[in-house]
Simulated scan of single mutants.
Amino acid sequence: MKRASSQPILIYCKESDYEEVMEKVQFQEMAGKDRGGGRGEDEDEFDDMADQVTCISLHKREPIKRGEGELSWDSDMWRQEQKTRATRLEKQLKARWALEDQIEDQLNRFHAHYNRATAPTRLKDVAQLLMPKGTPAYEMAALSWFGDWRPTAIVGLLRSMAHSSSSLSEPMGLEEALSQLIHEIGIEEAVLDEEMAEIQANCVLHLPFGPAGSVNNRAAGPALARVQSEFKKIHRVITKAQNLRFRALELAVKKVLCQTDAAEFLVAFVGIQDLIHQIAAQQKLRKGPVSVPLKALGCS
Rank of each mutant, 00 (worst) to 15 (best):
G213S: 06
H277L: 13
R3T: 01
A4S: 10
I103H: 12
C258K: 09
E198N: 10
E250R: 15
D34C: 03
W149D: 11
S16L: 05
A212N: 11
L205Y: 06
D105W: 05
R122Y: 09
K65A: 11
Q28H: 06
Q28N: 12
E139H: 13
G173L: 08
E184F: 11
P211N: 07
E68M: 11
P208C: 03
E81M: 08
N108V: 00
K255I: 01
A220V: 03
H206K: 09
A262C: 06
P171G: 07
Q102K: 11
W149A: 03
K24Y: 09
A262I: 02
V204N: 02
Q52S: 04
A137K: 11
D274I: 05
A98E: 15
R61L: 11
A190K: 05
D274A: 13
C203W: 15
R39T: 05
L257H: 08
A248Q: 02
K240V: 00
L10H: 14
R159C: 01
K65P: 00
E176K: 14
P8D: 15
P151F: 10
Y12L: 01
A280H: 11
K2Q: 10
M196L: 14
I154R: 12
L174Q: 02
E176R: 13
D101Q: 13
Q259V: 03
R245K: 05
A252F: 13
Q283E: 12
L207C: 02
G173S: 07
F146L: 15
I185A: 06
R66G: 01
N216C: 02
C13H: 14
A263G: 04
A268R: 10
P120S: 05
G67M: 07
L275P: 00
Q26C: 00
H59M: 04
V270S: 14
R66S: 04
W97N: 11
V126K: 11
L257G: 03
R245I: 01
V253F: 13
T84V: 08
A112S: 12
S166E: 14
A201G: 05
T84A: 13
H163T: 02
K14S: 15
G32W: 03
L224M: 08
I11D: 11
P136C: 03
L174E: 02
Q92K: 15
F246T: 01
A31P: 00
R85C: 03
N108H: 08
R79M: 12
L143H: 10
P289V: 01
S5R: 08
L224T: 05
K94R: 15
S75V: 12
S167T: 02
R247N: 13
T239C: 12
G38A: 07
V215I: 10
M1V: 08
S165P: 03
L251T: 07
F46H: 04
N217K: 10
I279L: 11
G298N: 09
C299S: 06
S160L: 12
N108C: 06
M140V: 03
Q7Y: 08
K83L: 12
P222V: 04
A119F: 14
L93M: 10
V227P: 01
L71G: 07
H277E: 06
R39N: 01
R35G: 02
T54M: 07
